[in-house]
Simulated scan of single mutants.
Amino acid sequence: MILLVTILAFVLMRVIPGDPALMILAGVTGDGSFTQEELANLRQELGTDRPIYIQYTNWIWNLLRGDLGMSMFYRTPIIEELGPRIPATFELAFMAIIMSAVLAVPLGAISAVKQNSAIDYAARIITFTGISIPIFVIGLVTIYLLVRWFNWFPPLGYAMLWEDPWVNLQQMFFPALTLAFFELNFTARVTRSAMLEVLREDYIKTARSKGLREGRILMLHALRNASLPIITVAGWSLARLLGGTIIIEKIFLVPGMGTLLIDAITGRDYTLIQSTVIVYALVVLTANLVVDILYSWLDPRIRYA
């Protein structure tokens, strides 16, 4: 999978229009003056004048040795550009996952227990509405409401979690909540469907006939057996959330990998884009591996098989 990601990231960046050497010489406004000789020299320096298969081979060889290379646009080591931004993106994504789970699982469970009630209909309307709204719309509306009603603006400076935890959490709360709202609607729908299926099982009827408390039945029997689809969605949701951080970081001025990726795409910084995509892919694949391992812990039948 990682090999496939490297090939796609490498080939797609060279298929779409744009020349990093031209972007550097022409500048952001595109009115920079240069000669064809200067353009050719810069292409040779960046290595973009070589055949694609040679460029790919050199990049993969350096990547296997732990060398992410140099940024074509910033002309600095990629690790220096990418390293300080990874914690912000991961913090935002994991805060969103936690918020989403805390809000979505109870909402879906209550909706299933109270099926066809007013609570169920209200929860379904909320989740349907949330699924239908694009994440950038949610982010822009959140910013507008915060500015208009609470006079809250995205901070221009950013405090790392280990430097000033309280300030960091204040800065990351609203972006993470916006990202969580984007995801919790789908998770709540999956939770409701899984709970409805489990609540119809015979062992739930047996537990009720034995006189167990309803809360114990729901928590220990129903929710635990319904957790496998929820965890599956959680692993897949991390990919969606990491994709959503790109837009949310730009809207809320969070200096994470998403903001850097957008800037790299604008400047056709091939090497920086490829390295950022690899980091995203590694995190998503690792999360799915963890989900597979959790299956055997939650469902003993998988271990016995």
Rank of each mutant, 00 (worst) to 15 (best):
L218R: 03
P84Q: 06
L4C: 12
R192F: 05
T266L: 12
A222N: 04
D202W: 02
L4S: 08
K250N: 14
L285K: 00
E163F: 14
T76A: 10
A40G: 15
T232I: 07
W149I: 12
M70H: 04
I262M: 08
V167C: 04
F94Y: 08
L253K: 09
L238T: 02
L107Q: 11
F173T: 13
F34S: 04
I248W: 08
F252E: 02
S111Y: 00
G27Y: 02
T142A: 13
E163D: 13
T286F: 07
T259E: 07
T259R: 08
S227F: 00
A40H: 04
P154E: 09
A112Y: 10
M23W: 01
S193P: 12
I79A: 06
N288E: 03
F173G: 10
G32Y: 08
D292A: 12
L68A: 08
M72Q: 10
H221E: 00
A188L: 02
I133P: 02
Y270C: 06
I135V: 15
I52S: 01
M95E: 01
A188I: 11
T276Q: 13
A305S: 11
R43V: 06
L282D: 10
I16L: 15
A104L: 04
N58I: 14
I54W: 01
I110H: 01
I230R: 00
G83D: 00
A109P: 00
A222S: 15
R75T: 00
R303C: 09
T35E: 02
F94S: 11
V233Y: 05
V5M: 10
N58A: 09
T35N: 08
W166Q: 09
P175T: 07
L4W: 12
I133V: 14
L169V: 09
G157K: 03
N41P: 01
L107I: 13
I246W: 05
Q170L: 12
I54A: 14
L228I: 15
F186D: 03
M219T: 09
V5P: 07
T187R: 07
E45D: 10
V137M: 05
L228K: 09
E38W: 02
R50F: 13
R268M: 11
M195V: 15
E214S: 14
R50N: 11
L12P: 08
L196I: 11
F186Y: 09
Y53M: 10
P155T: 10
G83W: 14
H221I: 00
G243W: 01
L228T: 14
A239E: 06
S33K: 06
L184N: 05
I24E: 07
T178I: 02
I265S: 04
V141E: 06
I78F: 06
L238I: 08
A122Q: 06
D263N: 13
Q55R: 07
L289V: 12
V277W: 00
N116K: 14
G243Q: 01
Q44T: 14
R208E: 04
V277K: 03
Q44P: 00
F153A: 12
V11F: 02
L199S: 09
R240N: 11
A122M: 15
I79T: 12
I86W: 00
A93Y: 00
E81V: 05
I2R: 04
I278F: 14
P77L: 02
I125Q: 13
R50D: 14
